[in-house]
Nucleic acid binder design. Structure first.
Lengths: 188, 188
DNA sequence: ACCTATTTTGTCACCATTGACAATAAACGA
DNA sequence: TCGTTTATTGTCAATGGTGACAAAATAGGT
């Protein structure tokens, strides 16, 4: 109990800097020195407070996923279908920096089974939210389809690909959520 | 006109090796030495025939995109809606190694505007195919929605996320392609 | 057999990044 | 003031990848 511990804040500061670097250059091309500079600290401090590269990446992933999960959990349980559509098409997949981070996570997940698992559980939360809020009988698969559509179109928007009218996507999705499936494949 | 030129074949051989390495380890972690070993050649040969790292990446991207484009162009013009659905859900986004490559391209596109442009044009071809084959009046936006849905669900499948019944996705998409939009947002 | 263009081998210096560590400074309690 | 714990600085060797280049080998034309 001598010099006061600033570890928690330093870690936070460093992770924020790391996140900024990752958004700018990606995980692979971000060096410890980059992070240190972004944080206005010495490289050795990054190592002292966070550890090695692997530790740092793990810590940032935790931070990102926890934040995402908290945001999803915070969705009110009494939203209308229209609010869900707005959520899907304008909030969840909208912010470009958020998208950059998401892409990074997906890319890492390509070679990290554990991260795949964790990403999956985050998206599953969203699907369940949508099925609860926007389908008559909490049909999982229609919510899954709606989320897939929103997710896919967000990725395409990233390439500059858009529908002629964004309203069309919304109305198609509204339709998709409201209309009962033909009896054949119906489930849950 | 002395020793016969083997450049074309060597380049092909090296690019194939590079592709294999990229599928295994990704662009960032594939070194010239990796490629050389995979091709059973000397590292210097890679440099001699392909050039530097940047050149090699550019060459592989060209190769991949040209192949993708050719495959899309080869889709018969008289397919039925069901064939289009099968195409979307079972062919285009199915093969895991293809998916790995696609992910790599998307990731590069994150920081390469030109590549974004080229990727966009490939997907646009697919959208146009679908709108021609599967919508009554070649409605771009419904085809766009269907492709987004298939694309998104393929990505999710990569995480292990699936619909309870794949048939549900198909029927939702079939529905989405067939049902006319409400007059409001209709276009094209 | 010789010349020439091309391919192939082998080696080198350079640079960036990482991980490790020793030395020093700072803050607080006793 | 002294001791202890934590934070901070600075430096080092090791690693791994890249680009460059000087040779040597090869295969055809003449």
């Amino acid at each position: 109990m001598a010099r006061p511990r600033v570890g928690t804040e330093r870690r936070e500061q460093i992770l924020a800097a790391f996140e900024a670097c990752v958004i700018r250059s990606g995980f692979a091309k971000t060096t410890l020195a980059d992070v240190a500079e972004e944080a206005g600290q010495q490289r050795s401090l990054v190592r002292y407070f966070i550890g090695n590269r692997e530790d740092m990446i793990g810590a940032l992933i935790d931070r990102l996923l926890e934040r995402a999960e908290a945001q999803l959990q915070a969705i009110p349980e009494n939203d209308s279908v229209e609010q869900v559509l707005t959520l899907l098409f304008e909030h969840v997949f909208d912010d470009p920096t958020t998208n950059a981070v998401i892409m990074e996570l997906w890319y890492l997940a390509l070679r990290d089974a554990r991260l795949r698992q964790r990403l999956a559980s985050v998206y599953e939360i969203l699907v369940i939210k949508v099925s609860t809020l926007a389908t008559a009988e909490q049909e999982h698969d229609r919510a899954f389809a709606a989320v897939s559509l929103a997710f896919g179109s967000a990725f395409f928007r990233y390439l500059g690909l858009r529908p002629n009218s964004p309203d069309n996507l919304r109305s198609v999705t509204r339709h998709l959520l409201a209309e009962p499936l033909s009896q054949k494949g119906k489930r849950q």
